[in-house]
């Protein structure tokens, strides 16, 4: 359970938990190790490795296009396992993908192979709490923490249930919408949700994701009492702009170094 331990330690030490998200892409395999080393150097606590899916309904245009590109380039489950072996040597790694690719490989078998490749967490954005029981069992058997997502619009009671059932951390979606950025008026005050989660599961870190792109957005997320942030779309955009490890390191350091209030 390397993911749990790394996050809990960072939290206990009062450090900001910073989790970058990288989409697995065959074309980028040769650069992967250098990128992840740069992210660790910049202060990343753990890594989310995205496996592309053909129908990513929780993703905005940037990550949707990245998934389409990765799939057109022939990226497969084997590439994910290979990437996992590389990244988990550097940072505790969780896989983020949609329900169908995991189901297609069989819940138990997928969890076991991912665990065998060094993965210690699984995040499935279209898996609801109501459907999650067999997934939690399979994840546990494979040595993975199944991370659940909470979102605006959920009652305190619902967020509490999610926090109690989540492992590794609770992923709190920052606004009404898909990954990328919030439309006008779609942000809500996350503090009550963070509070509800912390009350229900005092030792579980709460990470805010969606729309974290710089120090200001990270600071706003941390001001709710959250323990850290997940950075996806903005990192993908950064890599498209300038994929050099030194540039990525400089850029990510500003986000990861955002202090907790």
């Amino acid at each position: 359970m390397r993911l749990d331990k790394a996050l809990r330690t960072a939290r206990a030490e009062g450090r900001t938990i910073a989790v970058p998200y990288l989409m697995v892409e065959r074309r980028r395999a040769s650069r992967l190790k250098a990128t992840v080393l740069a992210l660790r150097e910049a202060g990343a606590t753990a890594l989310e490795l995205g496996f592309p899916f053909s129908d990513p309904i929780a993703d905005g245009p940037v990550l949707e296009a990245a998934a389409n590109r990765a799939l057109r380039g022939g990226t497969t489950w084997a590439d994910l396992l290979e990437a996992a072996r590389v990244t988990s040597e550097v940072l505790p790694t969780a896989v983020m993908t949609y329900a169908n690719p995991v189901l297609r490989h069989g819940l138990e078998a997928a969890a076991r192979t991912l665990g065998g490749a060094g993965i210690s967490g699984l995040i499935v954005p279209d898996l609801s709490l109501e459907e999650s029981a067999p997934w939690r069992r399979a994840a546990r058997a494979g040595g993975l923490s199944l991370v659940l997502l909470a979102a605006p619009g959920g009652s305190d009671e619902r967020v509490a249930r999610l926090a109690r059932s989540s492992r590794g951390f609770l992923y709190l979606v920052a606004y009404y919408g898909t990954t990328g950025h919030a439309a006008e008026g779609n942000r809500v005050d996350l503090a009550p949700l963070v509070n509800a989660a912390h009350r229900a599961a005092p030792s579980l870190p709460v990470l805010v994701g969606f729309g974290i792109r710089d120090r200001a957005s990270a600071a706003r997320a941390l001001s709710t009492g959250a323990d850290g942030v997940v950075v996806g779309t903005a990192l993908e955009e950064m890599i498209q702009r300038d994929p050099r490890p030194a540039s990525i390191e400089r850029w990510f350091r500003r986000i990861a170094g955002t202090p907790r209030p």
Binding site: P125, E130, L149, A151, G154
Partner: peptide
């Protein structure tokens, strides 16, 4: 069947 959806949709459903 079932409901495999992002959490944001759960209250609406």
């Amino acid at each position: 069947g079932g409901a495999f959806v992002p959490e944001t949709l759960v209250p609406a459903l």
